[in-house]
């Protein structure tokens, strides 16, 4: 099953270590906060992605399984996930 990077924007302090080890998928915005390419991580970048998760000093990054098709988090059974209406 494919995986994607999930960033907790509340935890993230913008140190940018993740962008250093995974520049293919992470760039930094004007204020130093990571912009992450969404969607399943290409197989050849998985090791780097795991490394990015490890180097984050505040544990703001996680790997998360994605269903086939690349949308949504595992265990998210309801449409509320995408609406923000919950």
């Amino acid at each position: 099953m494919a995986e994607r990077l999930r960033l907790d924007p509340i935890r993230c302090d913008g140190y940018g270590m993740c962008a250093e080890v995974l520049p293919e998928l992470v760039t930094l915005d004007d204020w130093g906060y990571p912009i992450i390419v969404d969607g399943p991580i290409p197989r050849h970048l998985l090791a780097h992605a795991r490394r990015a998760v490890e180097v984050c000093p505040v544990l703001a990054l996680r790997l998360q399984r994605v269903e086939a098709g690349g949308q949504g988090a595992s265990g998210a059974g309801s449409g509320q996930v995408t609406t923000g209406g919950s």
Binding site: P9, D30, W31
Partner: peptide
Amino acid sequence: AQCGPCVFGLAA
């Protein structure tokens, strides 16, 4: 005031 892009982006 918890998420960088919200804090700095909206302020900018």
